[in-house]
Design a protein around this nucleic acid. Structure first.
Length: 664
DNA sequence: GCAATGAGCGTC
DNA sequence: ACGCTCATTGCT
């Protein structure tokens, strides 16, 4: 049949289409005529091809209606790719809201939300959901006074938002699985979003234990296109109630959602790197609101954002009583930089470990328990060696490795000890007398070798980078890891030595202290209770708030402090902040044409380090700050200003991010 | 005075 | 990347 013979469908012949183009000024529906032969397949949510300005482009059919607002004549849909309604109405609404909140486009969000099609997989049938499971036992929540009430609310289908701080050694995947199973038992759906693959495997295993295989689907980006689409389709077709995944799973089209869970919302993996960079916590909070579902933010530590949800009364907090905590928390010892002393023991001097840390490790090994040693991420802080004889440069006070703080632009900043934080203003190599320093990379492996010599008889294992261990067996061992790569020890570690404090706390980042505490607590939560001998040694100044919070195991106090400090400084989440990046010309032009809501504040522009892709190009960043109540208006005006530029086909792009993780 | 040509812009 | 509008050019 030729194109001239196409006839419109008899009913609702107008299709509203979202075209998949990355241009801000085209972020609105375009109307097309549905030809008769596609009448049955052209369902809301299906993928289509349309001729748009002469080109064939992909799109999603948002709706079928009788009349178009468009005055000109409508083109016919070129093709319905398939009748599979991949874009659920709930997700279409959510994606629009998130696009607006982040000054992005609907197409940007749909690219994050809907995986690429795989035709063969789409032809296969997917399983029916099993009958709702029985109510699970949730005894584990009894250790938290408000825990049972929260599960009860979930059981009754009431909307309940909570921020939960897990106890040290908590089997948190089991707790999350119990919450999920409670909601699944009511017939409603659940999404659990975790930062990474390892957490996903743990939560998946816990859910399968309670719910069986049939009602649980794990979604992850690294599955490969066919398997990824297959599992995603099971969810879209209502074949599973419980979805576990990494950040893209926040958009999973689970039927009748009753609960959304974020584990460890401070982990930066929850922030999407692709434009416009939505954060899982925001997406799910919005989605909970829209769907009348519950939200649970859980973690050992608490973010300032979670604290704000508690302070505004939007979420309840679920915490253990202090005496419960005292019984399970490890004893935490902090050593300030002025107090660091090497142990007298010759083996400890050889390992260059502070005496307190050495004693804690030795006691743990003697008790037959593994010891966790958290060291800075490889390449994060390059260590220094003598520029002449290449002997490792050591701290004069504690003999820890010297490193350059800050960035490559430095030179001004003196070398500083990675363990005790003392600056070395006038290095002189004890070996050859040279004053020159050169950068070398000392990773976890090197640290491991040195520790191995100090504790002969205890095996040394490393976890980090490309090789992350899920678990280490009980029994004496030295386990060296970078933050986030801590293996589980079934019986708990006897001790944890947190040697990366200086590297964590010296970052110029707004979130540095919160992040330090989060990483420390994640490691320290794997240690045996203090009454059972569990010790944590953190090498950082004990007057610092995150150190105090760790010693007292009080993440709530720290989050409240952090939020107050940010309120004082006018930083998110108390305000909303937009970062606008571009070449100096483009940025000037953009800011000139930008209308802003009342009370907006422009900071900068300041120069940015060159982008990895184009090293020669000069780039700047301006920050725009505004009260939360005007956040939406700010996003609207930014989106408007971006679309003016794309409509003009300006060659120099502008990048806009709202509430970015890194402000500078 | 008006057809022929091309640059610019919106895109259904 | 097509096709429409509108301005400019060149010829009568």
């Amino acid at each position: 049949m030729g194109k001239g013979e196409r006839l419109p469908a008899a009913q609702r012949s107008v299709a509203r289409i979202c075209v998949d183009l990355p241009l801000a000024h085209l972020d609105r529906p375009f109307d097309y005529r549905v030809p008769e032969q596609f009448d049955a397949d052209a369902v809301p949510g299906c993928r289509v091809r349309v001729r748009f300005a002469g080109q064939l482009v992909d799109g999603y059919l948002l709706d079928r209606v009788d009349e178009s607002e468009h005055k000109g004549k409508l083109a016919f849909l070129e093709r319905v790719v398939s009748a599979e309604p991949v874009l659920a109405p709930e997700i279409a609404t959510l994606a629009r809201l998130i696009a607006d909140r982040y000054a992005g486009t609907l197409a940007d969000i749909l690219r994050l939300a809907i995986p690429p099609r795989h035709a063969r997989v789409e032809k296969q049938d997917t399983p029916e959901p099993p009958a709702p499971p029985a109510m699970p036992d949730a005894e584990g929540w009894r250790r938290y006074p408000r825990g049972p009430a929260y599960l009860d609310a979930l059981h009754q289908g009431r909307q309940a938002h909570a921020v939960w701080q897990a106890l040290p050694l908590e089997d948190w995947p089991a707790r999350l699985a119990e919450a999920a199973a409670t909601v699944a038992a009511t017939g409603r759906g659940v999404i659990l979003v975790v930062p990474d693959h390892r957490d996903l495997a743990r939560v998946h295993a816990a859910c399968v234990t309670i719910l069986g295989e049939g009602d649980v689907v794990a979604l992850a980006a690294e599955l490969g296109p066919a398997e990824r689409y297959r599992r995603w389709l099971i969810v879209r077709r209502g074949g599973a109630r419980v979805v576990i995944g990494t950040r893209a799973a926040a958009f999973a089209p689970v039927a009748e959602p009753g609960l959304f869970v974020v584990w460890d919302d401070g982990d930066d993996l929850h922030a999407e790197p692709r434009t416009p960079g939505p954060h899982v916590r925001d997406v799910l909070a919005q989605r909970a609101h829209q769907a009348g579902a519950s939200l649970l933010l859980g973690g050992f530590a608490r973010t300032a954002e979670a604290q704000l949800l508690v302070d505004t009364g939007w979420a309840h907090e679920i915490l253990a009583a202090r005496d419960t905590l005292r019984a399970v928390a490890p004893r935490v010892i902090s050593i300030g930089e002025d107090d660091v002393q090497l142990a007298r023991d010759p083996a400890a001097r050889a390992a260059r470990l502070p005496g307190v840390a050495f004693e804690a490790a030795r006691a743990a090994l003697a008790a037959g328990a593994p010891v966790l040693i958290q060291v800075p991420r490889r390449g994060y802080v390059p260590a220094l060696a003598c520029g002449q004889c290449r002997a490792p440069a050591r701290c004069r006070r504690c003999a820890g490795p010297l490193a350059l703080p800050g960035h490559a632009d430095g030179g001004a900043a003196p070398a500083t000890c990675r363990w005790c934080g003392v600056a070395e203003a006038a290095f002189r190599c004890p070996n050859c007398g040279s004053r020159k320093l050169r950068a070398v990379v000392i990773g976890a492996r090197r640290t491991a070798e040195e520790l191995g010599r100090a504790f002969p008889g205890a095996p040394v294992r490393t976890s980090g980078g490309a090789e992350v261990l899920a678990e280490v067996p009980d029994g004496p061992a030295m386990v060296v890891c970078t933050p986030g790569a801590e293996p589980l020890a079934p019986g708990g570690y006897g001790a944890a030595l947190l040697l990366d404090g200086w590297a964590l706390l010296s970052r110029a980042d707004l979130r540095a202290t919160e992040e330090a505490l989060r990483r420390w607590m994640t490691a320290a939560a794997l240690v045996r209770p203090g009454p059972a001998g569990g010790r944590v040694v953190v090498i950082a100044e004990s007057a610092l708030a995150p150190v105090q919070a760790l010693v007292r195991w009080d993440p709530v106090w720290h989050a409240a402090q952090e939020l107050a400090a940010r309120a004082e400084l006018g930083f998110p989440p108390v305000t909303r902040m937009a970062a606008v990046d571009g070449t100096p010309n483009a940025l000037n032009d953009f800011l000139d044409g930008l209308r802003l809501p009342d009370g907006a504040d422009i900071l900068g522009p300041v120069p940015l380090p060159p982008a990895p892709g184009s090293p020669g190009e000069e780039r700047e960043r301006a920050l725009i700050r505004i009260g939360r109540e005007n956040g939406r208006a700010l996003a609207t005006m930014l989106a408007e200003a971006v679309s003016v530029r794309t409509a003009r086909k300006e060659p120099e792009p502008i990048r806009v991010r709202l509430d970015p993780l890194e402000l500078v």
